[in-house]
Design a protein around this nucleic acid. Structure first.
Lengths: 207, 207
DNA sequence: GCGAAAATGTGAAAAAAGGCACAACAGAAC
DNA sequence: GTTCTGTTGTGCCTTTTTTCACATTTTCGC
C-alpha cells in the first residue's frame, strides 16, 4: 500500500511541521508542506488520504494535530531502542550522534569484536559481540544498526536474526539477504556519492 | 532518461563485478548480477541497454569489460575530489572514512566555523570556512559534502554555490533549494530510521 | 443568511517503471 | 556443417506512481 518513497515524504512533512510548531503556526496548507518537502500539493494530499488523514476544506490542516498523526504513523510516540554493531569510523559517529536523541531514537549499546573498542562503562556502552544475543533479548530490542565491513555483514546479520532482531539499518556496502520476518534497509555512502557524480556530469553535458 | 534508481542499480552491479573480478571470474550473466543486486535479470539487461552496453548472446558479459564500462558511466575513471563542510560528529567520520579512498573518492579538505576544529596540518586538513571559496577555486573542486546543522544548511549551500560547487551531498536534515546548475542529494539518517521503523511495524501487524 | 473565495479529497488520466516472453543470435556438441 | 542449447536484447503489456482537474466543503464578508 504505502511504499518507501511515501513514508520518506511523511517524514519530511513531519519535520516541516515540527519547525512550524516551534514558530507557533496553527494551520498549514498542502502547498506549504509541498514546498517544504519538494513535492506537489496534490502529492501531499494523496499521501494523507492514504492514511485517512483529513484536514479542513477551507482551513487546511491543524499543525499540532497533523504532527501528532504523523508521529504516530512513524512510531515516534515511543522511544525506539537500537543496538549498533561495528564501532568503527561510521559506527562511532552514529553511537554519539546527537540528532537521534532529539528524535526519539536511542542507541542502547554498541557491539564489536575488537577488544580495543570495548567500553562497558561508556554512554552508550560498547560490549563484546558475544554478548549481543543476551543483551538484545534481555532489553527486548528489535532494531539494529550495522556498520561493519562488507565481508562480515551477512554473517553479522545472521547473528542479529537469531537474536530476534526485526529491523536492520545497514551501512555495509553490500546487498544483504534477509528472511521476510526482518526488514533490512541499506545506506551505501559510496553509492550515494557515485549517484551524485553521475547526475552532476549529466547536468553539465547538456541535461 | 536514466533515473536515480537506475544509477543506484548500476553501482550495485559495479560492486558485484568488482567482487567477481577479485575472484578471477571472466564471464557473468544477467541473472548473476540480478541476484547480487536484488533485482530481476530483465531489469539488469534493460539498464544496460539504456547505456548501450551489450553482451554476448550466448556467453553473457565479460566481467572486465563490463566493469570498465560501468566505471566510466559512474565517473570512476578519475579521482573525484570533494570538500567537506561541517566537521562535527558525522563530518569527522566521513573525513576519515577509509572506504572512500578505495573507491576513487578523496576529501581534499574539511571546513568549519569553529576554530576548535581547525587542523591545517591534518590529513585531510580542516580549515576555516572563510577559506572555502578560495580553496575550491584554487583546486578546481566541484563537489561537496555538507554535514552541518539544519539551521545552517541553506546558508552554507549559498556559500558553496557562489564558490562554484556543482554537486552537494547533504547530511543536514532539511530539504534544500538549489538552482538547476547544482545537484543536491540528501541523506537524512533520522528519516531512514523512521522508514525502517514504519516497515518493521507494518511487517509485524500482518504485512 | 447568502454569495464568493479558498482549500481539500479523490476519481480519472497520464507518465514512469518494471516484468514477461520470445525472436535472434552465439557457441557447443557431435 | 548441422543441430541443439542457453542467453541476450527488446517490443509490449502490467503495475505503480504521479499529476490533473473539479466537485465539495468550509469560512469570511456583508
Amino acid at each position: 500500500m504505502a511504499n518507501r518513497s511515501c513514508i520518506i515524504r511523511l517524514s519530511r512533512y513531519k519535520n516541516a511541521l515540527n519547525r512550524l510548531r516551534t514558530l507557533n503556526f496553527v494551520r498549514v496548507f498542502s502547498d506549504n508542506l509541498a514546498d517544504a518537502a519538494g513535492v506537489t500539493a496534490a502529492q501531499v494530499r494523496k499521501d494523507f488520504s492514504l492514511f485517512g488523514i483529513t484536514g479542513n476544506r477551507r482551513g487546511g490542516y491543524k499543525v499540532a494535530d497533523l504532527a501528532d498523526q504523523l508521529n504516530k504513523i512513524l512510531g515516534k510516540e515511543q522511544l525506539q531502542e537500537f543496538v549498533l554493531i561495528g564501532v568503527g569510523n561510521i559506527g562511532r559517529a552514529l553511537l554519539h550522534y546527537p540528532g537521534f536523541e532529539r528524535s526519539g531514537i536511542n542507541i542502547t549499546a554498541g557491539f564489536d569484536i575488537d577488544p580495543a573498542k570495548y567500553a562497558p562503562e561508556g554512554k552508550p556502552p560498547v560490549l563484546p559481540l558475544e554478548r549481543l544475543a543476551e543483551f538484545v533479548k534481555h532489553h527486548s530490542i528489535t532494531l539494529a544498526i550495522m556498520a561493519v565491513p562488507d565481508y562480515a555483514a551477512q554473517q553479522v546479520l545472521g547473528l542479529l536474526l537469531s537474536a530476534g532482531i526485526k529491523g536492520v539499518m545497514n551501512f555495509a556496502p553490500i546487498c544483504l539477504k534477509a528472511p521476510s520476518g526482518c526488514i533490512v534497509n541499506s545506506i551505501n555512502l559510496e553509492t550515494e556519492l557515485e549517484n551524485l557524480i553521475y547526475f552532476v556530469n549529466a547536468n553539465e553535458n547538456g541535461n
